[in-house]
Write a protein that binds this DNA or RNA. Sequence first.
DNA 1: CTGAAAGCGCTTACAG
DNA 2: CTGAAAGCGCTTACAG
Lengths: 342, 342
Amino acid sequence: MTEVQRATIQDVALLAGLSICTVSRALRGLPNVSESAQGRVAGAAAKLGYVASAAASRLAGGSTRSVAIITPTATTWFFAHAVEAAEQVFADSGLDTMLISLRNDPSVHSRIFGDLPGLAQKVDGVLLINVELTDGQIQALAASSLAVASVGMYDVPWDNVGIDNVLAARMATGHLLDLGHWDLAILCDREKGSRSVLTASDRLRGFTEALTDHDLTVDADLVVNAPSTIDGGRQAMTELIENRRMPTAVFAGCDETAFGAMAALREHGLSAPKNMSIVGLDEHPMSDFLGLSTVQQPVADQGAFGANLLVDRLHKPDSAPEPANHLLPTSLLARSSSRRRR
Amino acid sequence: MTEVQRATIQDVALLAGLSICTVSRALRGLPNVSESAQGRVAGAAAKLGYVASAAASRLAGGSTRSVAIITPTATTWFFAHAVEAAEQVFADSGLDTMLISLRNDPSVHSRIFGDLPGLAQKVDGVLLINVELTDGQIQALAASSLAVASVGMYDVPWDNVGIDNVLAARMATGHLLDLGHWDLAILCDREKGSRSVLTASDRLRGFTEALTDHDLTVDADLVVNAPSTIDGGRQAMTELIENRRMPTAVFAGCDETAFGAMAALREHGLSAPKNMSIVGLDEHPMSDFLGLSTVQQPVADQGAFGANLLVDRLHKPDSAPEPANHLLPTSLLARSSSRRRR
DNA sequence: CTGAAAGCGCTTACAG
DNA sequence: CTGAAAGCGCTTACAG
């Protein structure tokens, strides 16, 4: 259990019979290193189990070999899975992952985005997951030394991956319309007004478009704000039942919201699809059991895809192809929570 | 959007009219700094928005101002909530959080615990959540320069917080016994043989003790291994129904396992409590909706408590009181998934 | 292709 | 109580 001294670049240089700067270059794959030097350095480093000191290389202007995942929350189904999938990609790429959960706390948000130089001092890049940003914050991030990629964001000057939320919502709503429903409600989270995250807005838009296609209009009374949690869904459905009016079908913005809605129905002596058809969006592992019709979206895939986008940018910072937006596919899963209107 | 140069300790020293080493001491609250110096430094630092360079202070032998959370997974209910609660405590203490999910991957596990000096180079301390460790790994960790605290671990030479799993399991099992059941099964994860995590073993022990108290014995055929996930519970219940035999009641090691068990019952045309009473352990947000009887355990509280334990150790590394083990309370919540034996 | 030198921004003994 | 000096382990120009 003797505290073994870590090998330094000096040790590697000594063993390889070269100077530390040649070693440094060789290790980082920089040009102007002979084959022989390259080989000797690699051998010496391997033999000593050398790993560069993150602190030293960072201080000297190099990289931190770490990235940050910034997420609105780490607890709900979507975010927990996206975060873990991204962390796996980073770990496999030799990057450490710093976790920053905004927790819906504006003070945390501004602490982070108000001190980008501070963040840049700790990590080489950030993966943003559905983070609401002002135009100023977007520009500041893009102008910073940080590499950036994101999941589920809109119109951002960096690589992004997500799903087509308008389409997904149209699929869910279309499913209800196909079953003969025409009096529809939507339970959906509401963005605080940022342009960078339009998940909920797009789902509302898809809902609206689907209705319009059928020459129907949206009843404002049936558009209920619902945080994307079980409790959010429960409260929204309760609001609908007690203070608005009952539609024959409802599209819940995400499966957890749908679960809460089903719970509220039960609390009022009602159930789906008997008194109301329900369709969600996610394909949460409980949805099958609960018979929830839903639109499946890839979750771990989005997290991993986003992480890879960031890793790629980190590896080739100069050769910058245009930032791209990637959309992953979704699909409808009809189950027992929705049925033909009687 | 000009790239503002961060203030360095030099800037603060200049503004305060002191040397950088006095500034360094003052900033870190070290002794031998006059009141006046203390004040001038604080003022200058505040005025410049000075934050010490993590890399530089780390390299010079100081702290990293960051900690790691090591968890078996970041996706299941318990771990996701414990991780987020801990991250919040760390963030509020000015510490950065590195997330390391072991993902049930032995190679990740050995990569981490096989290179403690590497870890210690990046963080000041680690919070372990139900991490299976060998005696050698426990000793190596304790002997390392890392501060350590944990959640849900056993017989470890550092501060820990958890629940009394034997008691919790006795409560769950006792509830079924009180309802007149005497033919009981248990669906529970099985530890890989480590002494550091006995969550499942203790739950099995509590189950066994409760039966023994009633002069009953455990039927080995009714002890089914079940990973703590929905799918794990589904498979375990399917195994029970198809290849073992049907008891009148079952204790599921955690709520997600219970959900899966309920799903498997349904797939076989059965349901709880009609064909079988079920009780879980957790109090997952879906449990109420599904009518699952369960034993509630605090989750965010355990994560936050563990994080505070680590923060305390970090703040006073010398004055080392004996490592303590804290147990948080649990309570029974009887719902409709369990009923009196007919 | 390779190396000597300076410097990144701190902390740690060591003097005073 | 305070400061000058050395050094942590790298990377970055700059010479050769």
